[in-house]
């Protein structure tokens, strides 16, 4: 299977602290990969490395065969930042049309992206008047524009109601079946079961990289939260 993202020996410092320690993994094309770990574990930093906006101390990140952050990748990688990055003083529609224009797309594509995240009814509303969940969906609509080959989504389902979350995960898998690769971060363990592959990260270290089924089998538990705890305790046992 072709590789979409390859990370080798990635180490990142922020200030004097090392926030990612020698991380290596690879992601095959057309899969939905979950990046899971507690808040502050380094998920956002790792995603920023894949998008190519993070200064890196050591290691290599290759995205769709090119070094991360290369100019050509800006057309083919979609990025949803953790804090919604849309303009609060524009309407949802105006935001989507602006981001569409950056990719050379027209108003019809922009309006479709807005409808795809369930915001058709709120399209004419200023983003500053939206609820938290709607706000992040407006941002998601802008990240989906242009049919990217790789989608890097930082906590896309936080604050969404369960029904909508179900719908969004359905859409992510539709995209993956169409060949898109998705890397989705979450600190909510119950989202782990929806992914094809899981990366567990803790204190800047990759502690597991496997399918949900194999993780369950290896740790002898049905619950992925328990699996994570099992692995985390095992690591501490080794350290102690």
């Amino acid at each position: 299977m072709e590789t979409a993202v390859a990370v080798e020996g990635l180490t990142v410092d922020r200030g004097k602290r090392t926030v990612l320690h020698d991380i290596s993994f690879s992601v095959p094309r057309g899969t939905v990969v979950g990046l899971l770990g507690p808040s502050g574990s380094g998920k956002t930093t790792l995603l920023r490395c894949i998008v190519g906006v993070q200064l890196v101390r050591a290691g290599r990140v290759t995205v769709l065969g090119r070094p991360a952050g290369t100019a050509e990748l800006r057309r083919t990688v979609g990025y949803l930042t953790q804090a919604p990055s849309v303009y609060a003083d524009l309407t949802v529609r105006e935001n989507a049309r602006y981001f569409a224009a950056l990719y050379g797309l027209g108003a019809a594509e922009a309006d479709r992206a807005v409808a795809d995240v369930g915001l058709a009814d709120a399209a004419g509303q200023l983003v500053s008047t939206l609820s938290g969940g709607q706000h992040s969906r407006a941002s998601l609509a802008c990240a989906l524009l242009g049919g990217p080959e790789l989608l890097v989504l930082d906590e896309p389902t936080v604050g969404q109601d369960p029904l909508l979350r179900e719908e969004l995960w359905g859409r992510f898998h539709d995209l993956a079946r169409g060949g898109t690769t998705l890397i989705v971060s979450s600190h909510v363990m119950d989202e782990a079961r929806r992914c094809d592959r899981l990366l567990f990260i803790r204190d800047g270290r990759l502690v597991a990289d496997d399918t949900p089924a194999r993780l369950r089998a290896e740790t002898g538990t049905d619950d992925l939260e328990q699996a994570f705890l099992h692995i985390a305790r095992g690591m501490e046992g080794v350290a102690a």
């Binding site: 906006v53 990688v77 804090a83 919604p84 849309v86 303009y87 950056l102 990719y103 802008c142």
Partner: peptide
Amino acid sequence: TTGTLERLLTTPM
């Protein structure tokens, strides 16, 4: 501060 700059710099802009 709102992250739109970082977002824009990941687009073809």
